[in-house]
């Protein structure tokens, strides 16, 4: 008797990805695909690819997909979800896409409480365009547009998206995880599952931030990159659940009975 104990999820196509060795996009893709399978939502899922390294994500997932303009995935997801609330809509965005050019869209989608799921890849650099500074680039970290390291006096400090969004009052699920440490991967998957589960229940907006690696643009070996993420990013980008839809709403803004 032979049992299959490990296989490719149905929601992931049988195809080579273009991601560099040591990049955690691949692991994250797989985790998303596993969750789509396990929650049996692949056949009603619509993904939205960003502009960034994951621009071709639609080639790797086996579900309906759209490609958004740079930063606009949450707006596009809003349009899809409001037109078809029965679909499970998720965006997959990097730090330039979500936290720089698309900051307006992500904050307002979260604040409207759009019932969508956002997978946010934070690798502290622009991968696709060749290693420029991201809003999440660490102080003194070198990038092609800050060749002497990020100068906080002119570029400010890195933006912590999970903390920022969890400050909104609108109920949501916000967590930060990482796929760069093997022991953390089950946590990451649990967060993803939770995020999609909330959407299935129609409860809230959900976002899972992945502290990720970019060995190519960081100029490190894959192992070293995982180490740097752990030693330099995680102390600032702390892992954990930042907000759940059960968090209390301040009394001052709790809606009163509206007179018809």
């Amino acid at each position: 008797m032979v049992n299959t104990i490990f296989s490719r999820p149905e929601a992931h196509r049988d195809i080579f990805t273009h991601y560099c060795p040591g990049c955690t996009h691949g692991i994250t893709h797989r985790l998303v695909a596993e969750v789509l399978d396990e929650l049996k939502i692949r056949e009603r899922a619509v993904g939205i690819a960003p502009v960034g390294c994951a621009v071709l994500a639609y080639n790797y997932f086996y579900c309906d997909f759209a490609e958004a303009a740079h930063g606009r995935a949450p707006a596009m997801a809003t349009g899809i979800k409001r037109a078809r609330p029965d679909l499970i809509v998720f965006t997959y965005q990097g730090d330039g896409d979500l936290a720089s050019i698309g900051m307006g869209e992500i904050i307002h989608a979260a604040n409207r409480g759009e019932k969508i799921t956002v997978i946010f890849i934070n690798n502290a650099i622009y991968g696709m365009t060749g290693g420029q500074m991201a809003p999440t680039t660490m102080p003194n970290q070198r990038a092609t547009t800050c060749p002497f390291g990020r100068d906080v006096n002119v570029a400010g400090y890195p933006i912590r998206v999970a903390e920022l969004l969890s400050n909104l009052v609108t109920p949501s699920y916000v967590a930060r995880v990482t796929a760069s440490i093997p022991s953390q991967i089950p946590n990451a998957k649990r967060a993803l599952r939770k995020a999609f589960q909330y959407q299935i229940e129609g409860r809230c907006f959900s976002l899972v931030e992945f502290v990720s690696t970019c060995p190519t643009n960081w100029g490190m070996s894959p192992i070293k990159a995982c180490g740097w993420a752990q030693s330099d990013m995680l102390p600032f980008y702390k892992l954990g659940v930042y907000k759940t839809p059960d968090d209390p709403i301040p009394d001052a803004v709790r809606p009163r009975e509206v007179k018809k």
């Binding site: 619509v46 939205i48 759209a66 958004a68 303009a69 606009r72 707006a75 596009m76 997801a77 809003t78 349009g79 899809i80 979800k81 409001r82 037109a83 078809r84 679909l87 307006g104 869209e105 904050i107 307002h108």
Partner: peptide, 23 residues
């Protein structure tokens, strides 16, 4: 379904998304 977007940039991408569902 009426939605006030946060900007025209968002609005046009919302109609883009809705149009992708064929409506």
């Amino acid at each position: 379904v009426f939605t006030q977007a946060e900007s025209e940039v968002a609005a046009v991408n919302m109609i883009y998304g809705a149009a992708c569902t064929g409506t």
